[in-house]
């Protein structure tokens, strides 16, 4: 079992009588950006929730840094960004970060660092509800980075962002990984796959491929990840 990474074993989640996750097994080590790709509705968000420890699981196990997901000791060590930005719309950017920093107990200087990471320094005194959708999700991302987490779980963090910013954010994810964090990013945009060190392709609650982007293209003989995904689906 990996002491410094994520280990998922035979994970199953049944919600409302529907099998959302159907026995997933994989490991994610530190220092890597792992992309979780698949069409919307395939169970990506549920898997991310299970890793963070907020999803009740039906069978199997999720182990983070040697502890069961959701354990008290892990709450300092995980940064989680949901698809819809979970921040207070009626507070300013800085007020949001100050509040969450107080909950985490980190130093206040970290607030400016995180604002710089997501390029929101100029918006720090604006009320979040008045920001654009992309800016709002960046506030949510900044909050997740406050605690200098060792595991970063990001559910579709780049939706609706302009290409320059998207590139910058992927660079940020890689910097976090280089600093030793395990970074887990989901996306339904297949062309983001090439930015990951490792890919997990998901469909209907199962993982249909687990490899590096290059290996995936080589194995399927496809020119891009979208085509590779299609050929894997047709194979099965």
């Amino acid at each position: 079992m990996m002491k410094n990474g994520v280990a998922v074993a035979d994970l199953g989640v049944v919600r409302g009588g529907v099998e959302v996750l159907r026995g997933l097994t994989f490991e994610v080590g530190p220092g890597e950006v792992t992309g979780l790709l698949g069409p919307s509705g395939c169970g990506k968000s549920t898997l991310m929730r299970a890793i963070v420890g907020v999803q009740r699981i039906t069978r199997g196990s999720v182990t983070i840094f040697g502890e069961a997901a959701g354990a008290r000791a892990l709450r300092h060590r995980i940064g989680y960004v949901t698809q819809a930005p979970s921040v207070y719309d009626d507070l300013t950017v800085a007020e949001n970060l100050t509040f969450f920093a107080a909950v985490l107990g980190g130093p206040r200087t970290r607030i400016d660092d995180c604002l710089a990471l997501v390029d929101l320094g100029a918006q720090r005194d604006r009320v979040v509800g008045r920001l654009s959708g992309g800016q709002r999700s960046r506030v949510s991302l900044a909050v997740a980075l406050l605690g200098e987490p060792e595991l970063v779980v990001l559910d579709e963090p780049t939706v609706g962002l302009d290409p320059v910013l998207r590139r910058d954010l992927w660079e940020t994810f890689h910097r976090l990984a280089e600093a030793g964090a395990a970074v887990f990013v989901s996306s339904h945009v297949m062309d983001e796959a090439t930015r990951c060190d490792r890919l997990l392709l998901m469909r209907e609650g199962r993982i249909i491929a687990d490899s590096s982007p290059d290996e995936l293209l080589e194995k399927t003989g496809a020119a891009d990840v979208e085509t590779a995904f299609l050929s894997l689906v047709e194979e099965s």
């Binding site: 989680y80 949901t82 909950v103």
Partner: peptide, 13 residues
């Protein structure tokens, strides 16, 4: 409903 409670409960609160 906004997810802020879930976020807080995933933190050391």
């Amino acid at each position: 409903t906004s997810g802020t409670l879930e976020r807080l409960l995933a933190m050391p609160l």
